[in-house]
Nucleic acid binder design. Sequence first.
DNA 1: GAATAAGCGAGACGGTACGTCTGGTCTTTAT
DNA 2: ATAAAGACCAGACGTACCGTCTCGCTTATTC
Lengths: 203, 203, 203, 203
Amino acid sequence: MSNEKGPDHSRRKERSRQAILAATRELVAEEPYEKVTVEAIAARAGVGKQTIYRRWPSKSAVIFAALLALSENADRQNDEQPVTLPDTGDLETDLKLVMRATAEEFADPAFDRLIRALNTEIVNDAALAAEYQEKLARPLDEAKKARLRSAQEAGQLNPDADLDLVLEVLYAPLFQRWLHRSAPLTAAYADSLVESTLRAFAP
Amino acid sequence: MSNEKGPDHSRRKERSRQAILAATRELVAEEPYEKVTVEAIAARAGVGKQTIYRRWPSKSAVIFAALLALSENADRQNDEQPVTLPDTGDLETDLKLVMRATAEEFADPAFDRLIRALNTEIVNDAALAAEYQEKLARPLDEAKKARLRSAQEAGQLNPDADLDLVLEVLYAPLFQRWLHRSAPLTAAYADSLVESTLRAFAP
Amino acid sequence: MSNEKGPDHSRRKERSRQAILAATRELVAEEPYEKVTVEAIAARAGVGKQTIYRRWPSKSAVIFAALLALSENADRQNDEQPVTLPDTGDLETDLKLVMRATAEEFADPAFDRLIRALNTEIVNDAALAAEYQEKLARPLDEAKKARLRSAQEAGQLNPDADLDLVLEVLYAPLFQRWLHRSAPLTAAYADSLVESTLRAFAP
Amino acid sequence: MSNEKGPDHSRRKERSRQAILAATRELVAEEPYEKVTVEAIAARAGVGKQTIYRRWPSKSAVIFAALLALSENADRQNDEQPVTLPDTGDLETDLKLVMRATAEEFADPAFDRLIRALNTEIVNDAALAAEYQEKLARPLDEAKKARLRSAQEAGQLNPDADLDLVLEVLYAPLFQRWLHRSAPLTAAYADSLVESTLRAFAP
DNA sequence: GAATAAGCGAGACGGTACGTCTGGTCTTTAT
DNA sequence: ATAAAGACCAGACGTACCGTCTCGCTTATTC
């Protein structure tokens, strides 16, 4: 006769949900992408396939949810605080730090596979692309834009610059180089992108 | 009695090869990507499945070959001449022309599906990505870099600029915006990219 | 609700099983044997191929099961009673009745195709041949031998006769003539076989 | 060597023909029947597939021709003389000799496979069955009937007996027992068949 | 505290596509 | 001119997954 029937009720639900998302992340990180099947996820999660399809409409959605949960977990570890970029007062220093870190992240095989999986699903699914924009990309972009606005106020960036454009000019080359494996993602490359972007949008 | 043994030999081979590649292009351009199956390609090409598997190891390879052939055909129509970019003497004008054209190309549903198919296959296949670089991306990039070098000589671009980097800063944002459908590809946007790139790599 | 959970469970299984066996019998009876493929069976039964392969290891086994089920159904219609031969007290009369009926059965195109299919599979598969002996041939042979034993007791057949041999001498010529289509299976022929067999094994 | 291009011409034809038939016999005798494919025959014979299909309309026909040639070769080794059965004057002795030899023949794995292959093709092909009757079965049967006629004249067999029926009663049980592997083919069994047949058709 | 749901793990089901193999036809290369 | 070699179309093979459906069983409420 508890008023916690919701939570009690959801406890089992929640356990299986987490098992599915964890299994998905593990599979995506460990296996070549063609082996990431709903059946493999269900088996690794110790869950019936129907339990997956009861919650998500397709494999794409599960994979997306798994990566979304990953980033939410990261947030939660930061005490639910929104992501923020370092702000030492010097935009160039801060951006180089962030860009070098990003380049390194892509070098991690597990992370690499996760983001490739995400992009595989997004390329041919406009709905998923929209969800990706809204739930994953935009929050991060807002954090980055906050730092850029701070730089604009500090006179380190053109106050009329379109910040979305700035972000694209800064990040898209890195992303494309990684996606197409057209060249290695070195620290020097990260620095170059920061420098050229700052030149393009200097005050 | 003929010295045209080579051509004679390839005639049947070539006919089925072209039928397969044409069928693949049509399917990719017309159908949602999950309907582009080897069986559908074979059926539309009027070809046995084995004839496909005899030449290419996987669906990815067929699709890549189909798009590669497409660009080679385009070249052939231009009298086998290598691709060149317009050179009016004014880099900004020329680049804006090219970038606007590129943005429009992506707006064509058939072209959109072709490039999405290509990227779908490339994302998880490093070998294919390398082949894409070598056979499709590099030749185009060389043409673009030729125009940039001409601009460097004309004093319209920093003579020390890394031209690969210039190309990335110019094109990658467009590509990423299209891939993730994060915003529309307008002529104004194309212009903005040219302008910011020229600012970043001004002499 | 119902206490028939067990039957409920098997109902779906049983339905698909019966659909497969019925489709197999129909195809074998209607089509030339090369058209009896697992895919055709699955299509006609409205069943996935895997549902067939989940139950039987090969096409041979499915066809055998279909014919086995046919004979079991025939039994069931006879109130589960074992097959028995007529026993009027006169062996010659009874055997001629049975042999003429057998000859007529072989003349039915559907039955003809069924037995040819069965023999096609049996010829090159010793395991299937053994199963055929045990499940189809032996029960029938036992019924026939029961009639022969009755005749032995009635002094109409040599009491020392090897009944398996008697059966072979009686039936094998008919079977061979049918299998090799070496001559028509007339009533007169059926009678001749009975007469010569009775002469061979007279008391 | 020769100016007789005609013979030269046929010699080559004949060589490839013999190679095909020999390869077929070897494959049938050595391999499980599902491995006897036209491609395997062509490969072993060192011959193009078209050279096979130029001469025979189907795989069945090739296999049949191979076995037919086998028996013709056997004849040829006997100086082209028609087959004859031993005639010591005592029918029972002679038939037991022949039946025991036949039973032993079936025990040879190579011969077993050859005859199974032949029957596999014959069961579902009436035209082939007719050809089998005419070219393989009838000549042998005529030889056997000649011996039986001699016995009739010698008063060892009913002069009114239908000799085709006698042959069937004698051989069909052996054939069926072998085909269905229902019991071993012993010398005693061969003797029993001779004895029961002679009882059935005693003068 | 027994009855009644509601949700679960398990896995069979109807389908679709895979990549392989063979049958029988048609082309090319080489003699 | 003919044959070896083998590519070609067609289509069945047996397997793997998809997304749905059914089954018992375990939990958790509800009367």
